[in-house]
Each structure stands twice: as structure tokens, then as C-alpha cells.
Nucleic acid binder design. Structure first.
Length: 595
RNA sequence: GCGGUCGUAGCUCAGCUGGAUAGAGUACUUGACUACGAAUCAAGUGGUCGGAGGUUCGAAUCCUCCCGUCCGCACCA
């Protein structure tokens, strides 16, 4: 009940409905204002109305047909509007159409209830939720000793947007990350570096270079499989892993040093992407404790042995065998996740734990959560795996192992250069070189993040650089461009958000449509947040920009017929800009003032 | 084989917690800059919503089966 016009309508309607309920001998509290609020939807087109009330539930309660109830309530609402000054000013028409009541607002109603709260900032401070459990959202689990690629970007954008959306909606959110800084991939990287690398260590971009070491190591190891060298290689890898586990030896020293290079790369990327974590959990932090924990449970007889390894058998529940200790006594990914899940709840007293991880890990998380449950961890039910589909290349899956990745830095560089060459270099004589760089970077962020977020999480993204650099149509830069134009017109005609304006003059169809659309901002954001679907906000913002462009095309601002109309149109332009800017910020996308 | 994902316009996708005439982008065909920014706008062509049943007053949306697709299924993460 945060949107003022919906609130006004639902509070009026509920009184009328309750009168009918009592008359029909039904309990008055069979329906609440909240129920009515939820049943208020957008009609399929604006010609019908700005808001519609579907009478299905009400009709059921009254034991009458929906069209009959719509007729009845529409008449009651009309009468109410005729008597009530406030309603009379805000509501232009009420019409029953089949099972719906279509409501049209007056220009003044839309301006008063939609534009004014945006202008004074109330819209963006509205309380959208009541129950807001403390949640931790873990996202971005890159491995050290590998290079970050475009696939990692989807996870990062998604996790960050969800954190932002939920925080805006009033939730208490902690963001965490869980980099994989131990494991065989590290050993393979160090092995190659130590025994086969002939290059000298670069001064810059050590993290990316390290990723190449891993890739080369992996390929060489595969080549040597089946040769006499295989046995020798295995011995060395085991020795490396042992040293890492016991935290001493030359490999351990090399690990400490190289690990920092990777972390530096991650931090650079997070800084670029404006992504922030409240806590960094490293796999190396939980590694040895996780093994102790599992051994303890095993000693208590809560786990089973199978083929020399220890774990839990969920095969009769179609979840396979969850392996927790390998036959050599070392742990696995699941081992660490079992330990980490407990820590999160203990460290921060959270009520819900969300994991933003690739959907290929679905079975893994099912097993981990089930294991937690079997081990008596009550909060297992509060753990949730938020899945998304992965990013692949036109010729198939990306893999650091094979070395066929598109590094994130390559995407960012290509995008920035493309934007400068195609659009920004034309301003070389007007703007400083610094501004051109800054704006190119902001637009690149818009293109990349919007591209990662606009597609629903359950669909995979096929990454093609040529397609990604096309910035027309539904793209981040399209929305940013609309904002820049709004900004430019506001500057040209100077607009004061605190100045009064005449509210009943915005009567053009494209003005009404735009205002009606702006009305829905918080509703869309809340929906987007609670369903973990940033894509919903993406398409809303795209629509906002499109509707603004139509208005901008249809309605002259500078040469408006009257000064009042000009002022009101400036208010509408400003409001649209504010919604776009806030909306983009919830997706982690900056809004340049000009571009 | 078992489990899961997806299947909507030529292509890429919205719509899926059941509700009004299935929408965008792109491509293609047109039109609009002496203009508040053309990275724009306007118009047109284009759909048995994979198939078949079922539930319902009402199904792209829910259920069942089938077909196609991709993913996962113990010592990697």
C-alpha cells in the first residue's frame, strides 16, 4: 500500500465492498484494503483507463457474477466520486467493462499523486515492505589463479542488482563473496609456473597472466596423460596441495604471493563494477575447519562410508550421494559449503541465506541443504539457491580449463573504444578528454550490465561481441541517452523542483500515458526485488524511456502554448529523469548528464 | 536411464503467482532533422504461443503424457 493513487482507490473501494458484504450476510473482514490494492491492475491499454479493478474475488465473496459486481461497484464508486471533493478532483471516469472496473484519473490527479511525490523525493523514500528479515546474499565465487571472464559478469551484475533492489525495498541485506583460493586448479597453475613457464612475471596485470598459467598448465597436463610423465605430475600436484593444507613450504609461499595477484584483479573488477561486499569468505578460511566438522559428525555416526569415502546417500530421494570426505581424507566443495552455511548464520545472526550460483550447481546445493538438515541444522530450510543460466559463446560453453574465454577486461576495453569511436569522439573539441573517458566508461557499464540483466535468469546468454556492441534498441545506452536528453532540456529551460506548478494542464495522451507509467515505479521495483528478477525493472525502465521519447516528440516544452504548460511539462520531464536515474542506480548503472 | 531447464513473429526475447484484442527489439519496407539532442520518433509486413489431452466461466500461463533442446548425475569446483 505504498502507491498513493492505488491506495486512494483501494481505500474507497473497500468501504463500498464491505457495505455489500454485510448486505449479503458475509463477514465484513472477508476482504481487506490490501486485497483490493493487490487486485488493482493496469488495463491492457490506456484508452480503457489508468487502473482497473478485477472483480473476481469480490464476486466470489458476494456469490454473484463478476460483471454484475463490476456494474454495481462502478455505480457506487461513481456516486462516491460525485460527493467526495478529493475523489472528484483525482478521478475522471469510472466504467464497468465486463468483470472489470476501469478507472481514469484526471490530469490533476496524476500530477498531484504521481509527479509531486517524485519531485519532493517521497516516492524514493516510501516504505515498501513490512516484514524484512535479515538476509545474506552470497554472489561472485570466482577462483583465484584463473581469469575473470564475461560469464562471471552475469553473476556479479545479478547479485549486485538483487542486493540493491532488496535494500531499496527495505530489507536488511548483507552481501558476501566466496572466492575459491584453494583446490586443484591452484596446484595446476603453480605446477606450470614452477616447472614449465619460461616467461618472466609481468609488472602489470599479474592476475590475468596467472590465469593464462592455469590454462596452459591444464592443457599440458591433459597432453601428458597416458605418458610416463603422468605419474610424476600427479605426485607433484599432491605435494603442492599438501603444502597448502599444512601452510608451509615453497609452494605455500608461492601460493600466498600469487593469490594476492588474483585478489587484486578481483578488487579492480569489483571497483569498476561498483560492487561491494560486507564480508569476504575464502575457501582457505573454511577448508580445515570443514574437514574437522565432518570428521566429528562421522565419529558421532551421522555419516556413512562408501568405497573408502565418507558422505551421505540421498539416492533414494533422487539426489545421489553427497561426498563429504574423499578416500584420501581431504574435503570437497560440498564439505566447505556445509561449514560455511553454519558460519553465516552464526557470524551474522541472519534469518535467510541466499546463494546466487549458476544453475549447473543445482544438485550440489540440494545435497548441501539436505545434508545440513540431516545433521540437525534447523536453518537449512532458510537456505536458498538462486539459480541462473550461464553465458556461453556461439560455438559452445566457455571454460578456463580450455582457455576459450572472453576476459572481462577485453569486453570492457572493446566496449569503451567502440563507444568513443562511434559516438563520443565527435565532442573532442567541446569536452575535455577526461570527460570523454568517464562517459565512455559509464556508457560501457550501461551496455554491459543492462545486457547481463535484461534477459531473465532462466535463459542462457550467448555472448557475441558484435551483437553486444550494437547499442540501439533495448539497451542500457538507450535509457542513458534518454536521461541525457532530459537533463539537457532541464538545463536549457532551468527547472526548480520546489516551484509550484499548475497540475491540471498535462492532458495530452502521451503525457497521461507517461504519468500513468511513472505511477508504477515502486510497485515494479518491489516485484522485481521479491522475485529476484532485475529483468522486470530493466524492461520497465526501457518502457519509461520509450514513453518519454514519445512525449518529447509530441509535446513541445520550450515553445509550449502557455507558461503554465511549459512548467508542468518540465516537471514531468524532471520526474521521468528522476525515475530513470533511481531505477538505473538499482541496477548498478550510472546515468551520465550528457553523452 | 534418472532429475532439472528451456521451446512464443525470420532471429533475440517479454508476458507465466490463470483474466480484457499475445507484446518489444532486430531484420525488412516507408516517412520525419532550417527543429527542446536523429544513440531519436512515426507507420507497415510478420504468430496453429512445440504437439496432444485435462482442470476452469476463462489457459501462452496450472496438471498429465509425448517430441525437441541444453544442463546435472561420488573422490573437480
Amino acid at each position: 500500500m505504498h502507491e498513493p493513487l492505488r491506495k486512494l482507490v483501494s481505500q474507497t473501494l473497500i468501504k463500498l465492498i464491505q457495505t455489500q458484504l454485510v448486505a449479503a450476510g458475509v463477514a465484513e473482514d472477508a476482504m481487506s484494503a490490501g486485497d483490493v490494492y493487490k487486485a488493482l491492475v493496469e488495463p491492457p491499454n490506456t484508452d480503457l483507463g489508468h487502473l482497473a479493478f478485477g472483480c473476481f474475488i469480490t464476486a466470489k465473496n458476494l456469490k454473484k457474477g463478476p460483471p454484475v459486481v463490476a456494474q454495481l461497484l462502478a455505480q457506487e464508486l461513481k456516486n462516491e466520486c460525485a460527493q467526495n471533493v478529493i475523489l472528484k478532483k483525482a478521478i475522471a471516469s469510472v466504467e464497468a467493462a465486463g468483470p472489470y472496473i476501469n478507472i481514469k484519473f484526471t490530469p490533476a490527479g496524476l500530477a498531484d499523486y504521481v509527479l509531486k511525490p517524485i519531485l519532493n523525493g517521497e516516492t524514493f523514500k516510501a516504505q515498501l515492505t513490512e516484514a524484512t528479515p535479515k538476509m545474506m546474499i552470497e554472489y561472485s565465487q570466482p577462483n583465484t589463479h584463473k581469469e575473470l571472464h564475461v560469464g562471471h559478469m552475469r553473476n556479479m551484475c545479478l547479485g549486485d542488482a538483487i542486493v540493491r533492489l532488496l535494500r531499496y525495498s527495505g530489507y536488511n541485506i548483507l552481501a558476501s563473496t566466496f572466492p575459491g583460493d584453494v583446490g586443484t586448479h591452484v596446484a595446476k597453475c603453480l605446477w606450470y609456473m614452477k616447472y614449465h613457464n619460461k616467461e618472466s612475471i609481468p609488472m602489470l596485470n599479474k592476475g590475468a597472466w596467472l590465469g593464462a598459467m592455469y590454462s596452459k598448465g591444464n592443457l599440458l597436463l591433459e597432453d601428458q596423460e597416458g605418458t610416463p610423465l603422468e605419474e610424476e605430475n600427479k605426485k607433484i600436484l599432491t605435494e603442492i596441495l599438501k603444502q597448502l593444507e599444512h601452510k608451509n613450504g615453497e609452494y605455500y609461499d608461492l601460493w600466498k604471493q600469487t593469490r594476492e595477484w588474483s585478489i587484486e584483479l578481483m578488487k579492480d573488477v569489483y571497483k569498476w563494477a561498483d560492487v561491494h561486499f560486507d564480508h569476504w569468505y575464502f575457501e582457505s578460511d573454511v577448508d580445515s575447519d570443514s574437514i574437522k566438522t565432518i570428521k566429528k559428525y562421522h565419529a558421532e555416526g551421522k555419516l556413512v562410508e562408501s568405497q573408502g569415502a565418507i558422505g551421505l546417500d540421498f539416492s533414494n530421494e533422487n539426489m545421489g550421494f553427497c561426498l563429504l570426505l574423499k578416500s584420501d581424507g581431504t574435503g570437497l566443495y560440498a564439505t566447505k559449503d556445509v561449514e560455511l552455511a553454519r558460519r553465516k548464520f552464526e557470524d551474522y545472526k541472519i534469518e535467510k541465506s541466499i546463494y546466487v550460483v549458476d544453475q549447473r550447481q543445482a544438485l550440489h546445493f540440494k545435497q548441501v541443504f539436505k545434508t545440513l538438515e540431516v545433521l540437525g541444522f534447523n536453518q537449512a530450510k532458510d537456505c536458498f539457491h538462486l539459480q541462473y543460466n550461464y553465458v556461453e559463446l556461439p560455438d559452445g560453453a566457455m571454460s578456463s580449463r580450455k582457455g576459450n574465454i572472453v576476459p572481462l577486461t577485453a569486453l570492457v576495453e572493446t566496449m569503451r573504444n567502440h563507444i568513443k569511436a562511434e559516438y563520443l569522439n565527435r565532442y573532442t573539441n567541446e569536452w575535455t578528454a577526461e570527460e570523454i573517458e568517464t562517459v565512455a566508461d559509464q556508457v560501457a557499464k550501461g551496455a554491459i550490465k543492462y545486457g547481463m540483466l535484461k534477459q531473465d535468469t532462466n535463459k542462457k546468454i550467448v555472448f557475441d561481441m558484435n551483437e553486444w556492441t550494437k547499442l540501439d534498441g533495448e539497451s542500457g545506452p538507450f535509457i542513458q541517452y534518454s536521461f541525457a536528453r532530459i537533463n539537457s532540456v532541464l538545463k536549457k529551460f532551468t527547472f526548480d523542483t520546489k516551484a509550484e506548478f499548475v497540475t491540471d494542464v498535462l492532458a495530452h495522451n502521451s503525457e497521461l500515458k507517461l504519468m500513468q507509467h511513472l505511477m508504477n515505479f515502486n510497485t515494479v521495483v518491489l516485484n522485481s526485488a521479491e522475485n529476484y528478477k532485475p529483468a522486470a525493472l530493466c524492461s520497465y525502465l526501457y518502457d519509461t524511456a520509450k514513453k518519454f521519447n514519445t512525449f518529447y516528440h509530441d509535446c513541445a516544452i520550450g515553445t509550449a502554448e502557455t507558461p503554465d504548460l511549459k512548467k508542468a511539462r518540465l516537471a514531468l520531464a524532471y520526474s521521468t529523469g528522476a525515475v530513470i536515474k533511481h531505477g538505473l542506480s538499482l541496477l548498478g548503472i550510472p546515468a551520465p548528464e550528457r553523452m
